[in-house]
Amino acid sequence: MIGEMLSHAMSGIGDDLIASADESKVRAHFIRRHAKKRRMTLLAALAAVVCVIIASAIFTAGYMAGVGDRPEAGSSPNLGADEKAEVGQEIHDWRGLKVTSGLYSELTRELPEDDGSGMTESSGISEAIPILILTQSTDAREKAEAALADAGIAFSDGREIRVSLTPVQLAALEGEWTRECIFDLAK
């Protein structure tokens, strides 16, 4: 009974409501609705793809920039051109020396067997050479200092470790940290 009363009451709703729910209008409304939904989904997917492309482009650019900054084999790693110039100036101010890169490979090349005298005739380099050890971290500096102390080699304190080494001494110190942070100094 009450359901019928409500059914009859539905006849009293406004003309605009009745007309708006005509089948063709409802169909058109939902077609538009679904089309909009599809557009939004497509846009969201497109936005996601664009975000991925941008992110990968940023990552690639960053990676390539990193590759460009990498030092070549044989040169001092982890230092850019500006930093090297700065270090060179600092060393020049310190002892009137300038940094050269060629000696590093000379110093770290494979040396002949040590005869126990601390000198190697075949090397042709018997004099102690001023060396600057630059370390990027406290850990590396501690390793360097420990290695020098073990070898009984005197060195200066401070951010840079300044020390004079013969090629044999240098070879004895050879380790991971030496390749990364040794600068040779030569007049």
């Binding site: 409500l6 059914s7 539905m10 006849s11 709703i13 409501l17 009745i18 708006s20 729910a21 089948e23 409802v26 409304h29 939902f30 609705r33």
Partner: peptide, 12 residues
């Protein structure tokens, strides 16, 4: 959406 569905069901 609900309005149109409601009218289609309970008026039409």
């Amino acid at each position: 959406d609900t309005r149109l569905i409601f009218i289609r069901r309970y008026f039409y």
